[in-house]
Design a protein around this nucleic acid. Structure first.
Lengths: 143, 143
DNA sequence: TAGGCCTGATATTTGTAATTGTCAATAAAT
DNA sequence: ATTTATTGACAATTACAAATATCAGGCCTA
């Protein structure tokens, strides 16, 4: 699984690549399913990893018949606390740890180890660009 | 969370309790979301725990807007291997361990510790009758 | 400079999952 | 004994999420 984070493609380019409209891509971002970078001009720039992730999401919606809220919930089950090795106190201050309907990267973390992180480069986010990986993350987690 | 497994209610009774049709309840069973017991006459008998579980499923569908395939996938993420403490060899013989689209209790297990179990009484199944419990099960799992 | 992109709110279309209904035969209930 | 509820399988319906399309005003870039 290549994992190229380089900001490359414009929204229109990605729309053609995935055969969806730009409106749809903006909606996926609004829903927190993907976090493309921005150019200085504020235009979205998607990486190859973003495109892979979006392919994943498209398959989930069109073939597996998942709804968007369900996809968000599935992302929220990734054992991020284990992956980023956050402390007990980090966890008690973490809405993502207690919640189970939104991906961790959709929260504004303030008081824990994720506060300074860029979620785009966090393993929790990048690994989940690979479709089948979420159960594997659960399986390899330890307390 | 009470967890009464006593077979009590007919399908019509449950349909009135949850305000759905009996057809819907049969479909949920066909999809593997619930496994009601049967009377000797082959008629379905639902326990209170079954009803709780179905309430959960109804909330997921009507309020959280989950699709049925997504609910099945979420069930499939429960760390059953940890909960039933199955061995390495059990896991390699287990379609549920490698799969990520169907709840473990929908498989016919033949060669592992689950082969002789009745899934209706297995913690993996019974605990998931409580709506918010799946993430907690992931959180308390260890390698 | 023409075409692509931005925000953000609102409206419309559409595909299909979820639900309900029908059937005849059998079982349970009163 | 008659009614009511159950069974599975198949057909029909409906409700609504996902996707697309608007709008306007302004910026960006190829």
């Amino acid at each position: 699984m290549k994992m190229d984070q380089t900001p490359l493609y414009s929204i229109g380019t990605v729309a053609r690549m995935l055969e969806v409209s730009v409106y749809t891509l903006r909606m996926y971002e609004r829903e927190g399913l993907v976090i493309p970078r921005r150019a200085e001009s504020n235009q979205r720039l998607y990486s190859q990893s973003d495109v892979d992730r979006l392919k994943c999401i498209r398959t989930a919606i069109t073939e597996l018949k998942f709804s968007i809220p369900a996809i968000k919930t599935i992302y929220s089950l990734i054992p991020c606390w284990d992956i980023v090795k956050c402390s007990e106190s980090d966890r008690s201050n973490c809405a993502a740890y207690s919640g189970h309907s939104l991906p961790c990267w959709t929260y504004r973390h303030k008081k824990n180890t994720c506060a300074e992180r860029d979620c785009r480069t966090c393993t929790v986010y990048t690994l989940s660009a690979d479709c089948g990986s979420i159960k594997q993350m659960i399986q390899s987690s330890r307390k």
